[in-house]
Amino acid sequence: MFDIGMTELLVIGVVALIVVGPKDLPGMFRTLGRFTGKMRGMAREFQRAMDDAADEAGVKDVAKDLRKATSPKSMGLDKLNAAADKFEKWQPGVAPKTGDRTGDAPKAKSYGPATETLAADRAAQGDARRAGASETAGVAKPAAEQGPVPDPNAPATDASKGDA
């Protein structure tokens, strides 16, 4: 209740010895002990009376119902916590391991033929885009893909005039 250490008690004892005197000190401590005991008894009785009144009013039943109604399991928070844990453990770029809940080795997940075809098509589209981007960026093609080399001495023709 009070945070009094040994040094504080020693100081209080020395001051009481000086103020009250050695002859009356045991009587004073006896009276102080009785007073403290009565105060503790009154506090215990008050606590019992409050507990009995709470029992009669049904506070414990209401508190039990409130705990049950606000439990994480009844509100679905346990699933939310599990999802949050999975999100915190998520590592981008790493494929999730699949398997059963018993801790066995992960099972390989198979996709249908439509998914595999779509993946192959998208990979081909990505390759085509990368090839087109390298052409527009000025990346040199191999000599076989460049076509005929124009003659630098030949007169230039303008395609918009219809000259060929």
Rank of each mutant, 00 (worst) to 15 (best):
G126Y: 05
K23H: 06
G76T: 04
D24C: 10
L77G: 00
K60A: 01
A16Q: 09
M6A: 04
L80F: 12
V19E: 02
G37Y: 11
A133E: 07
E145N: 09
S74G: 04
E56C: 01
A156G: 08
D104Y: 14
R40L: 11
K97D: 01
A131N: 06
V139I: 12
R67E: 03
P26C: 12
G27N: 09
D104E: 15
G138N: 12
A53M: 00
G76F: 03
P22C: 10
G93N: 01
T98F: 15
G103A: 02
D52F: 01
M28L: 15
L17Y: 09
D127W: 08
P148R: 10
A63W: 15
V11C: 13
F87Y: 06
K109D: 06
T31I: 15
G21H: 01
T102V: 11
E45N: 10
E135M: 06
A54E: 03
D55M: 03
T115W: 03
A43F: 03
T117S: 11
V149Q: 07
P92F: 12
T7V: 08
A123D: 15
P92N: 06
K89C: 00
K38F: 09
K141Y: 06
L9R: 14
D3P: 01
K38S: 09
V59M: 07
D121F: 03
A144L: 11
T157K: 12
M50Y: 02
R40C: 04
L17Q: 15
K38L: 08
T98A: 13
K79N: 00
A128R: 06
D52I: 00
T36S: 08
P152L: 03
S71T: 00
T157C: 13
N81H: 11
I18A: 14
